[in-house]
Design a protein around this nucleic acid. Structure first.
Lengths: 352, 352
DNA sequence: GTTAGCACTTGAAGGTGATGAGTGCTAACA
DNA sequence: TGTTAGCACTCATCACCTTCAAGTGCTAAC
């Protein structure tokens, strides 16, 4: 593909992303390629269409980029957009230390992304599997039930009710609770699940409780609904493709199901930092006319979750990717800063 | 208002709810009032319009009920609908004992209501204020933080992270935790908030922790986002008024904000069991073209939350109210049954 | 390889007239 | 006095047509 073809393709995609109307040869020569005539551009456009990058609804309607064009655009043509100073300020101001626990942090990240991009944002919290259990307890609730709570340093990892034998006194439960904390403390959720045999032995008389706990641990393998958040669903109406009720319907059917959100956000290759899915071709759960751009963040070796936006195929990929990248950086700094602070604190303690 | 006027108004509302098209005098005489002529009905219709019960978009377009008509319809005209055997079966099958904790119960109630009515359902969980604290604990998480968990017999009442002095050892926290459980166990959340003075004295060296706990208790006054659930948002598309993008927009702007949902579901008179809000006139947060029907359930003196549907003004009030009533009955039976079972259990224990 | 020129296609916008649904009014009737 | 038939009137909808502008593809000339 010639440089001029690339340039023209870039112009078409940029223009279409901006205006949402099919772009014509005339518009291209008037605004961008002033040194050639519209006829020349027409020839190039016809050729780009043959290559599969452009489509026409009808002969007199200008051209529109195909999903293939967007992919090429993102990989080669797009200007890696820099954010405005205001946007950068907004990001750095948004994540203050007060967002101490991960639950809140996830929500505020999702909100920031949605606000800055003007698209609906989706997020899936940190993968719980590899987080270290900091503490664990069984809280008696009466009527033969107890609440099992597992926390890390920064969040409630999981909680759920389990049945306990009626014969167990509150003191017995407290004892069992201590054993659990000792047994599982410091382990990752995935490791915790593997101590089964050993644990059952140690528990002796409370074998049944342990069985229930193991059962609960197993059910924690998939993300909870609360770990999947959505921000700014109404943002969809800011984009003209969603004047069409059918598109809104598709969109809503996806975002109102946490399972589907998890599906389209979740199943990505760990190697890839930023992942773009364009239309149903890339993921059957993404509606025909939608794109999903996600980024997986981690800091200090710790997974911080996957965040992204869902919006029309005609998405401002440059802006979206810039926002995702900068939010990632801010998050990394926040977490690293905190770690360092803690290290300092610990150091001070040791120095005493 | 004459009996015939009432009958005609009833026919108009029934017909319009069913068909969503303005109803004409001819339709009324053909299908329902076969003993009078359409001209007579026209006179009555004109009179009902003057009374404010009916409106016309244009002279040749049939008539449509006004909000005032719906109110009158619900209070006097509507046939208190009985549910089909299938619907009743569905309800009684939906709430089995396995939905042990309140969180799941709320969700399943919301789903049942949405499924049976074909409208989007909204629910707000049991009012936490008067529930008795069954247990309470502080779980150390490191880095000067601890998780405060409060449970009743059937659910996690509240949880949140609080700061603790770095100097507190895990054992100290455990001690404080015991004191908390003793101090607050058996109290309602609203009562717990009032023990401030006494508590601060008892806590001695851990005064600061207690201050944080009190602070947390105070923040628990309003419902958590998780206590507000929504089921079947996509159901809205099953009703023709939501072919219009503007209406969908209004609708989505309300249901995507938990605060707004809480507002329209929450602020009702405790005296009223079933509450109907028709359009913005009854509640400024209800969109112009929407109605909200809610019911507050309680069983054994315990508040079980408020449930309802949000949908077009042209709502099948009879069906909706029947579903809400029957779901309420089923829920009451479920909870009473459980209480009895527990009483039985306790009795057996005492008999031993 | 580039360009001007032109015929062609197509959707959008606007106008027209026919159709049909539904009403309001009036006068006659019981 | 309430009811009814009859009729003129209103209005949305639809099909059909015309016009308009945008944009293309193609060709011939540079």
């Amino acid at each position: 593909m010639s440089d001029r073809k690339k340039r023209i393709l870039q112009i078409v995609v940029d223009e279409y992303i901006n205006s949402a109307v099919p772009v014509s040869s005339k518009a291209i020569t008037e605004k961008h390629l002033t040194d050639v005539s519209s006829a020349t551009v027409r020839n190039e456009l016809a050729s780009l269409e043959e290559l599969g990058y452009l489509t026409q609804f009808h002969t007199s309607g200008g051209r529109v980029p195909s999903p293939q064009a967007y992919r090429f655009y993102i990989e080669e043509l797009m200007q890696r957009g820099n954010l405005s100073a205001a946007d950068l300020d907004y990001i750095s101001g948004a994540f203050s230390d007060k967002t101490a626990d991960v639950e809140h942090l996830i929500k505020s990240v999702a909100n920031v992304i949605s606000d800055l991009t003007d698209y609906t944002s989706v997020a899936i919290g940190p993968n719980a599997e590899e987080e270290r259990i900091r503490n664990m307890t069984l809280l008696p609730c009466g009527d033969g039930r107890a609440l099992l709570v597992i926390v890390t340093g920064s969040r409630i990892l999981r909680d759920s009710f389990i049945d306990i034998p009626e014969s167990m006194s509150d003191e017995d439960v407290a004892g069992a609770s201590h054993m659990l904390a000792k047994l599982f403390g410091g382990k990752a959720l995935s490791e915790a699940r593997e101590v089964e045999a050993e644990a059952l032995g140690e528990f002796g008389q409370y074998r049944q409780v342990m069985t229930e706990v193991i059962e609960a641990l197993k059910s924690y393998a998939r993300p909870r609904d609360e770990d999947i958040v959505l921000a700014g669903p109404e943002k969809i109406f800011n984009h003209p493709e969603y004047e069409d009720i059918g598109n809104v319907k598709n969109f809503l059917s996806v975002i109102s199901s946490k399972d589907k959100i998890a599906e389209i956000v979740g199943d990505e290759d760990d190697e890839i930092q930023i992942n773009v899915k364009i239309g149903s071709a890339d993921d059957k759960d993404v509606p025909e006319d939608c794109s999903v751009v996600t980024a997986t963040y981690s800091a200090g070796g710790k997974n911080l979750g996957t965040y992204g936006v869902i919006g029309p195929i005609r998405m401002d990929y440059s802006k979206v990717i810039a926002v995702l990248e900068n939010v990632g950086k801010a998050l990394e700094e926040l977490v690293d800063g905190k770690n360092n602070k803690n290290k300092d604190k610990n150091k001070e303690k040791n120095d005493e």
